Simulated assay, not measured.
Amino acid sequence: MDKTTLRQRILRDRARLDEETLRQSAATVRELLLDQPWVQMAGLVACYWSFGTEPSTHGLVFALWKHGATVILPVIRPDHDLDWAVYDGPESLAPGPMGIMEPVDARRGADTIRTAGLIVVPALAVDRSTGVRLGRGRGHYDRALARVGPNVPTVALLHDGELIDGVPAEPHDRRVRLAATPSGITQLVHM
């Protein structure tokens, strides 16, 4: 299956998820992650502010922040790369140019992600054998993940059924080390 067809299938499946399923899934994934030592020890966490039927990160971002982590969220630059800014509570967000909430704090630069101790990324699917993630096709996170060192935990948040075999890969596609679904956390690449 090509990337476009796979994206369409997953987005169609996500559109069928009801609000209660989305809420419960988000709470389960949040608690699974917060129980992990590698999450608890991360002083600087790069995450994202979810939208639509993506696995929700709102509670995760808030919990990490309340537990003392510095959380940086992406700000999409005109060149489609990601800049980063600090989340400082719900009032620190405003709608960005694509309608996605972004921090209003000073931009820290695209290379800020290099200093993160944990990186949480969106994905439509992840290949269970290779860790290749399927994004929405603009390459924002492939560019960002190219800056990340080999020992930093990178985790994609997914709904059940989105950790699959056979995600198409191109040379620029970046792998994640872990996938988190309501069913559990799966290590994809040795940490």
Rank of each mutant, 00 (worst) to 15 (best):
P182F: 09
L145F: 04
R107Q: 05
A27H: 06
E170S: 12
L163M: 02
L145H: 08
D173Y: 00
G109L: 06
R138G: 15
D13Q: 14
K66Q: 15
P95L: 09
G96S: 06
T181Y: 01
V121E: 09
L158F: 07
A146K: 12
F62P: 00
T21F: 03
R114E: 06
L32C: 03
T181P: 00
C47K: 07
H58C: 07
G137H: 11
G135C: 05
L32D: 00
V126N: 13
P150T: 13
S56L: 07
L188N: 12
L188M: 04
V121H: 10
Q36C: 06
I113L: 12
P78D: 15
P103I: 04
I100F: 05
T57N: 15
P78N: 13
A180N: 03
C47G: 03
V189A: 04
G117F: 04
H190K: 15
E19Y: 00
E19M: 03
S92I: 03
M1I: 14
R30F: 06
M98D: 14
M1R: 11
P78G: 08
F51S: 13
I164Y: 01
H140I: 00
H67A: 14
G131C: 04
R175N: 01
K66P: 04
A110I: 02
F62R: 14
R9V: 15
G52Q: 08
L64I: 01
L11M: 13
I10E: 08
L134Y: 03
L34Q: 12
A63S: 10
V155G: 03
M191R: 14
F51M: 15
V189H: 08
L158I: 02
A169C: 10
I119H: 00
K66Y: 04
R143P: 13
A125Q: 10
L17E: 05
R147Q: 13
Y48W: 02
W84P: 01
G43M: 09
V45N: 11
L124S: 06
V29F: 01
L178Y: 07
G52I: 14
D111K: 14
R175H: 02
M98E: 12
M191I: 12
G166C: 05
S25W: 09
P78T: 01
G149Y: 10
T28F: 07
S25N: 04
F62C: 09
D13P: 09
G184Y: 10
L157E: 07
G96E: 11
V132S: 00
S92C: 07
I185T: 12
E102K: 04
P95D: 02
D165H: 06
Q40L: 03
A180S: 07
P150S: 12
G166F: 02
D127R: 01
L82V: 00
A125H: 06
A180I: 10
R30G: 00
H80M: 15
